Amino acid sequence: MDIEARKSELMSTYYFRHATKEFDSTKKISETDFNFILEAGRLSPSSGGNEPWKFVVVQSPEFRKELAPLVSGAVRSLPTSSHFVLILARKGLTFDSPYLFQQQTKVKGMPVEVYQSMQQAYAQFYEELHLTTERELLDWSSKQTYLAMGNMMTAAAHIGIDSCPIEGFDLDAVNELLAEKGLLGNDEFSLSVITAFGYRANEPKRSKTRRPMEEIAQFV
């Protein structure tokens, strides 16, 4: 496939995608296709390759019923979606945290002595980004979860599967429920964003609308 054909195919994917509020509950995403979507999330970029996320796929009808009163932005998508994903952000990801050490030396294969020699650079990086409080560290991780979510939604659209990003939820209440179910580890995670996947029940009422390029891109 030449480059123009590749560009056309990708643009078709973006034009296909829309925020699907209600799904056809009779249609389910195959295990193979959903693993493809999850893999797009797993391979997403993150600062330092730290992967500060966790994907909780809620398929249990009972669990969904418990979530229902806590996610006002998913009134139609929660009960109808094929797959409902809670994307969690890692908390307390300081430059000297055990997780970061394990991620860099075990997962990414950085020699321990190299990691140790970079501690001053890591500290400076955190200082320059004002990553000092628990809230700032969580916000930093949460920003990166949106990279994974965007890639998962694009991957889904690329194979004809719909999705909807969701921010309408009671954060404290959902976190409490997740903690009760042992899904936050040792208080290591917090809910960041939700994404529903499935097949649209209805076609969009209008074509995709966006501001013109000249209003949003500036070359200097």
Score class of each variant (00 low, 15 high):
residue 4 E to K: 05
residue 6 R to D: 05
residue 8 S to R: 12
residue 10 L to A: 00
residue 11 M to D: 00
residue 11 M to Q: 05
residue 11 M to K: 07
residue 13 T to E: 01
residue 14 Y to G: 00
residue 18 H to T: 01
residue 18 H to P: 00
residue 19 A to K: 04
residue 19 A to F: 04
residue 23 F to H: 04
residue 23 F to T: 02
residue 27 K to W: 02
residue 31 E to T: 08
residue 34 F to V: 03
residue 34 F to E: 02
residue 35 N to W: 11
residue 36 F to R: 13
residue 38 L to Q: 03
residue 38 L to R: 11
residue 38 L to C: 12
residue 40 A to G: 14
residue 41 G to I: 10
residue 41 G to V: 09
residue 42 R to A: 14
residue 46 S to W: 10
residue 47 S to N: 13
residue 47 S to K: 12
residue 48 G to E: 03
residue 48 G to P: 03
residue 49 G to K: 08
residue 53 W to V: 09
residue 54 K to W: 08
residue 55 F to M: 09
residue 59 Q to G: 05
residue 59 Q to L: 13
residue 60 S to W: 08
residue 63 F to P: 01
residue 63 F to R: 01
residue 64 R to W: 08
residue 65 K to Y: 03
residue 67 L to N: 06
residue 68 A to G: 01
residue 69 P to H: 07
residue 70 L to E: 01
residue 70 L to R: 06
residue 70 L to Q: 05
residue 70 L to K: 11
residue 72 S to D: 00
residue 74 A to K: 04
residue 75 V to E: 04
residue 76 R to A: 04
residue 77 S to N: 03
residue 82 S to M: 07
residue 82 S to P: 07
residue 82 S to A: 00
residue 85 V to C: 05
residue 86 L to S: 01
residue 87 I to E: 00
residue 89 A to R: 02
residue 90 R to N: 05
residue 91 K to V: 10
residue 93 L to R: 13
residue 95 F to A: 10
residue 96 D to L: 09
residue 96 D to W: 11
residue 98 P to G: 03
residue 100 L to E: 01
residue 101 F to S: 02
residue 102 Q to D: 07
residue 102 Q to K: 13
residue 104 Q to M: 11
residue 105 T to A: 04
residue 105 T to P: 05
residue 107 V to H: 10
residue 108 K to N: 09
residue 111 P to L: 09
residue 114 V to D: 01
residue 114 V to C: 00
residue 116 Q to G: 02
residue 118 M to W: 04
residue 119 Q to A: 07
residue 120 Q to E: 10
residue 121 A to C: 00
residue 122 Y to N: 04
residue 122 Y to V: 03
residue 124 Q to L: 03
residue 126 Y to R: 06
residue 130 H to S: 08
residue 130 H to K: 14
residue 132 T to E: 08
residue 133 T to G: 06
residue 134 E to C: 00
residue 136 E to F: 10
residue 138 L to A: 12
residue 139 D to M: 11
residue 141 S to L: 03
residue 141 S to C: 10
residue 146 Y to R: 14
residue 148 A to P: 01
residue 150 G to L: 13
residue 150 G to P: 05
residue 151 N to L: 15
residue 154 T to H: 12
residue 155 A to G: 11
residue 158 H to C: 13
residue 159 I to Y: 14
residue 160 G to I: 13
residue 162 D to F: 07
residue 163 S to L: 03
residue 164 C to F: 12
residue 164 C to T: 09
residue 165 P to R: 09
residue 166 I to D: 04
residue 166 I to Q: 10
residue 167 E to C: 15
residue 167 E to K: 15
residue 167 E to L: 15
residue 169 F to K: 13
residue 169 F to E: 08
residue 170 D to S: 14
residue 172 D to C: 15
residue 173 A to Q: 15
residue 173 A to M: 10
residue 175 N to R: 15
residue 175 N to E: 11
residue 175 N to L: 14
residue 177 L to E: 06
residue 178 L to K: 13
residue 178 L to S: 12
residue 179 A to C: 09
residue 181 K to P: 12
residue 183 L to S: 09
residue 185 G to P: 04
residue 187 D to P: 09
residue 187 D to Q: 13
residue 190 S to M: 12
residue 192 S to L: 08
residue 194 I to T: 05
residue 195 T to A: 15
residue 198 G to Q: 10
residue 199 Y to D: 07
residue 201 A to E: 12
residue 202 N to Y: 14
residue 206 R to A: 14
residue 207 S to N: 11
residue 208 K to N: 04
residue 208 K to T: 09
residue 210 R to E: 02
residue 210 R to V: 08
residue 217 A to R: 14
residue 218 Q to E: 12
residue 220 V to G: 12
